[in-house]
């Protein structure tokens, strides 16, 4: 649990105060300085429009990490609600809901996100929509599984008999049991969202210029692979480090929870 809290703190810090350390305006165009190599003036060099790459990477954290955070939380809420609906509704509700989930899973998520983002016009909102709509299914499955096992627990039946409202039962009896597993799923989906956002940016369907987003920076840098190859190293490195950190935290959390369940 501590690792995930630490991770959240680090990520929020990077995305939150990273831009404060940016030496330049990430969108300031400076043609005379275009494609300059790393120097004391521009630590990571400049891009084709002479914008400082370090500043763009630091500001990009807000887009790449921040959007991924938002997207993974939205799909967490959608997925949990759908999974619990299936578990508690039972019968036909369960069947329809889970077949819908299967339908959504019967398609590579990123390809679906590309289609949706592309067709809804590109840009930040359609990016959020596309990734949230294609990212809720794992949460739904986990929430349904746990919901089914909780539904017949003694204390849930007692709460029902006591006449507690559905919302109160969800809050006090379901949420505490759901939270650990959902957090593990969430770390995986957070990482996937970062990859998804930069992939869509790289294809031109994501965050639109001049906003600095790591994937779209790679798209810009790709053209100059022969002249200034270093330019494409930085945004990629930023993606890899973020995803790696999140995956490692997720693994640690999963192991910690497994240990807690099975005893030390």
């Amino acid at each position: 649990m501590r690792s995930v809290v630490m991770l959240a703190v680090v990520m929020v810090t990077v995305a939150g105060i990273g831009p404060l350390f940016a030496p330049y305006d990430p969108t300031a165009i400076n043609i005379p300085n275009r494609l300059s190599p790393p120097s004391s003036e521009f630590p990571l060099g400049t891009d084709a429009l002479g914008r400082d790459i370090l500043s763009r990477i630091l500001h990009g954290a807000r887009w790449s990490l921040g959007l991924a955070f938002v997207v993974s939380l939205i799909s967490l809420v959608i997925g949990t609600a759908i999974g619990l609906l299936a578990a508690l509704g039972g019968g036909l509700t369960d069947w329809v809901t889970m077949r819908t989930t299967d339908s959504f899973l019967a398609f590579p998520e990123l390809v679906a996100a590309i289609v949706i983002a592309g067709l809804t016009g590109g840009g930040t909102w359609s990016l959020i929509f596309a990734l949230a709509v294609t990212g809720w299914m794992r949460y739904a499955r986990v929430a349904r599984g746990i919901g089914l096992s909780l539904k017949t627990r003694g204390y849930v039946i007692q709460a029902q008999l006591a006449g507690m409202s559905g919302l109160a039962i969800a809050r006090w009896h379901y949420l505490p049991s759901l939270l650990p597993s959902l957090t593990v799923v969430w770390t995986g989906m957070f990482a996937r969202a970062i990859l998804g956002i930069s992939a869509l940016g790289f294809l031109g369907f994501g965050v639109q210029p001049p906003n600095p987003e790591w994937g779209s920076m790679l798209l810009d840098a790709r053209v100059h692979i022969r002249s200034t190859p270093l330019q494409m190293i930085w945004p990629g490195l930023a993606v890899v480090i973020s995803v790696l950190a999140i995956n490692l935290a997720g693994d640690a959390l999963r192991d910690a929870l497994a240990e807690e369940r099975d005893g030390p």
């Binding site: 992939a199 790679l218 790709r222 190859p229 494409m232 993606v239 995803v243 790696l244 995956n247």
Partner: peptide, 22 residues
């Protein structure tokens, strides 16, 4: 392998182009 799963395909592709083609 852990590192590998964190590397997006588009970046790996660009790195390979950089090394083996450029």
């Amino acid at each position: 392998a852990t590192l590998g799963t964190a590397i997006p395909a588009y970046w790996l592709g660009l790195l390979l182009i950089l090394i083996f083609a450029v």
